[in-house]
Design a protein around this nucleic acid. Structure first.
Lengths: 250, 250
DNA sequence: AAAGGAAATAATTTCGAGATTTCTTGCGAA
DNA sequence: TTCGCAAGAAATCTCGAAATTATTTCCTTT
């Protein structure tokens, strides 16, 4: 099923895809308070569609983690807890490292070129954002380029399924992040971190790439409450030999 | 959003959850041919609900990978290709090994007891199935015990998200398997394979547990067409250091 | 004043008909 | 025979009202 598809139509067109994208963007921008109800009737009026259509859109959002659904109790904005955040991060690191490993093994020069291009666009906006007055104005385009870079990184992994799952995790992560930190999740350090991921990928070093990916998300540990020990990212204890014996495509 | 919830009501009750469970079981049992259409109107009549309700159920199925959805073209049973199968397997091995690793690190004696209990039930039905005349009759209960064992294995991992994702993958895998092999995916070897996973988990050996999990799915390689090199399970090339530095809960 | 419960209010969920789109069938031309 | 096209058939999608369920309000009782 098509999920999180690209924005297509103009602002007045209100088909399901458009509404889905608009609400998901508003959610990812933190417009709705965490824990508040997504009133189907209010949204229905706002977008000028019927309750059934609105309900379908809300179900799609719920499936991708943008909303919580309880029978007979409607839809709510998920509470942005640090526990949930660390769970999403954990899965992102696991899938993104694996996807990068496979892409490094499978990717051709065309993949390298696309990755370079995606990083160039991302770095451009991020450097500008470091000195920008109003971050808010750049968040939408930054989110898009950020996603395109991470998507391209794993685009040669050979698994459509991995890419779909990672896409859901990316936007879920973004929504939670916006609810927990300031500046919409942008930090000046992200520039260097994305560069480190790019370099490791282009040098075909999966171990270093995985380490760079892990480091990219490690800033969350500084926000973690003392005493709330969770799925942290530091202090190795056990190596995961899960995919040790996995051949790659082609 | 409640997904794949337990079977609740009697056969005559036709609320959404019941219909969802019934259709998903029929799909997992291979009742509908892969690639065929899931006609909303036929199903609607069969379950005695309106088209809107039926549509909602079908969306839920699509969201969990049981059906494919295309706008204006309705719902279809996903084609059971070996490529898709190997992708799902790949994700299952990745997530299940990681979940087992975390459970081994976090799980207490109560977890060990639950795992033992789940395996006992699974082994009982599997031993019986090795000599059973009509496998068909045991598939539903076997599927349930099989799931409960794999679920319990990762139940102490500390990540609700990982468990949800794994649940979706389990039933997706089962559906694809039924479409590709005989005997509904049951092999006599599964008895020993599940035992190996259990032993490694109880001995708190994550590496051996991951290896046992991998081996549990390796039979697919024998079915793989020569020349169709895919996300196979043999022939290590690169180790995945993705989660090397991941602390565990508690 | 606090607690319990019933009525009023507000939300979700279901329904079936109508509008829209896609698929099928049959006819005619190359 | 093969291809294109148009008319008919069949399916999906949207809609708004009705039914169901949850929530709030307010009155009664302790």
């Amino acid at each position: 099923m098509a999920i999180l598809e690209e924005r297509l139509a103009g602002p007045e067109a209100s088909d399901q895809g458009t509404i889905y994208n608009d609400i998901s963007e508003r959610l990812a921008a933190g417009e709705f308070a965490a824990g508040s109800r997504l009133k189907a009737d209010d949204l229905r009026r706002h977008y000028g569609v019927s309750s059934s259509t609105m309900r379908e859109v809300l179900f799609r959002l719920a499936h991708n983690g943008f909303a919580d659904f309880e029978e007979q109790r409607g839809f709510r904005v998920p509470a942005a807890s640090m526990e949930r955040m660390l769970e999403v991060r954990h899965m992102r690191i696991l899938l993104e490292s694996e996807g990068a490993r496979l892409s490094i093994a499978n990717g051709d020069m065309e993949w390298e070129a696309r990755l370079n291009a995606a990083h160039h666009k991302l770095a451009h906006i991020e450097v500008k954002m470091r000195t920008a007055e109003r971050l808010r104005e750049h968040i939408a385009i930054w989110t898009r380029f950020d996603w395109e870079f991470h998507e391209t990184l794993v685009s040669a992994c050979g698994s459509q399924l991995l890419q779909e799952m990672l896409k859901g995790l990316f936007f879920r992560y973004r929504q939670l992040l916006v609810g927990l930190v300031t500046n919409y999740g942008f930090r000046s350090g992200t520039v260097d971190e994305h560069k480190a991921i790019l370099d490791a990928a282009l040098e075909r070093d999966p171990a270093r790439c995985a380490e760079a990916i892990r480091y990219h998300y490690s800033f969350l540990d500084d926000l973690d409450q003392p005493g709330v020990t969770s799925l942290g990212v530091a202090n190795q204890e056990v190596a995961n030999p899960a995919m040790a014996g996995t051949r790659v495509l082609k």
